[in-house]
């Protein structure tokens, strides 16, 4: 905590000093915004559509657009918000919700690890940059090269902000449209199932080590049969964790080669989807991010052993 504050303060002083000495460069500012906007376009498409899906689902459970907006402003995590719809409508306990959030979002730890250095000098922007580090934003900000006239820190900031605006906009559109259009919504819940099936397929194809995926399915099915529909989730999570440690040797040896792919497939396959047209660099960026992370990983392990 202290360290964080110190860094922020130091950076703030630095940027104030910079502002005093260098004249305002509006050309750079404009091209930064423009470049951030262009980079964000593929995310815009994905976020507006998936945000709309989230809004429709939430509205269908009796929560109006204000709830959708509140969640997209404060949570801002795609697949977790789909899960949250279910937690809300099912009246989950706070403990169950917290555990579910940890499991669904644990991959975000690695985005943070990858961005530690790049975000270290971002000053007042830093808390927001960290808060808004979603899968899609991560895939863009870990890009190594920026044009010369683009201010790196402002680029990160506007990109993150634009992405969140798309997500909020999509979820409000969905909630409002869902309420305005009266249609037979029976079965619309399947959108969430479909999202997770798609990500599951995407992940499956990205690795040769299928044991973790199989464990996830098998343990949950067994727990669902043993514990019933309302209380199988926590046993499943415990079971999955236990199985991961039980099969650690096996999983480790098999997954070593595919480690670099995992973050790419981590979740929200729709960022890959955004790769269709103006976005051919997504995979490279993920790989870049993973390499950087692997280096850090080595250092970290080295540090541990000392």
């Amino acid at each position: 905590m202290m360290e964080e504050n110190n860094t922020t303060q130091r950076s703030r002083t630095d940027s104030q000093a910079a502002a005093r000495t260098s004249p305002r460069n509006s050309g750079s500012f404009r091209s930064t915004i423009k470049y951030a906007f262009i980079s964000s376009l593929p995310v815009m498409a994905g976020y507006i559509v998936l945000g709309t899906g989230f809004g429709v689902l939430l509205q269908d459970k009796g929560y109006n657009w204000l709830w959708a907006a509140l969640m997209s402003v404060t949570i801002f995590a795609g697949s977790m918000q789909y899960v949250a719809v279910d937690l809300l409508s099912g009246g989950a306990t706070l403990i169950a919700a917290a555990l579910m959030t940890v499991l669904v979002n644990i991959r975000h730890l690695f985005y943070g690890l990858t961005m530690l250095e790049k975000y270290s000098d971002t000053g007042w922007r830093k808390p927001y940059l960290i808060f808004a580090l979603t899968d899609e934003t991560f895939s863009l900000v870990c890009s190594p090269d920026l044009p010369g006239d683009v201010d790196r820190k402002n680029y990160y900031f506007f990109l993150s902000l634009m992405n969140q605006c798309y997500w909020i906009t999509g979820s409000i559109i969905g909630a409002v449209a869902g309420a305005a259009l009266s249609f037979n919504s029976a079965g619309i819940d399947f959108a969430m199932t479909a999202l997770f099936v798609v990500i599951f397929v995407e992940q499956w194809e990205k690795t040769k080590q299928h044991l973790p995926a199989i464990i996830g399915v098998a343990v949950t099915v067994v727990c669902r049969l043993l514990f019933g529909t309302s209380s199988f989730l926590i046993p499943s999570m415990i079971g999955i964790l236990a199985a991961m440690f039980l099969f650690k040797g096996k999983v480790d040896s098999g997954s070593a080669e595919s480690t670099a792919d995992i973050r790419g497939a981590a979740d929200e396959a729709f960022s890959q989807d955004g790769a269709e047209t103006p976005f051919p660099r997504t995979n490279t960026q993920y790989r870049y991010g993973s390499e950087e992370y692997s280096d850090r990983n080595k250092t970290a392990k080295g540090g541990d052993e000392q």
Binding site: L103, V104, I106, R107, F196, I199, F200, Q203, T207, H210, P212, A213, I214, I215, G216, V217, A218, V219, T220, S236, M237, I240, A243, M244, V251, S255, I262, A265, A266, D267
Partner: peptide
């Protein structure tokens, strides 16, 4: 490993 297992879950 968790991302894979969690998506299955």
């Amino acid at each position: 490993v968790l991302p894979y297992a969690i998506m299955g879950m």
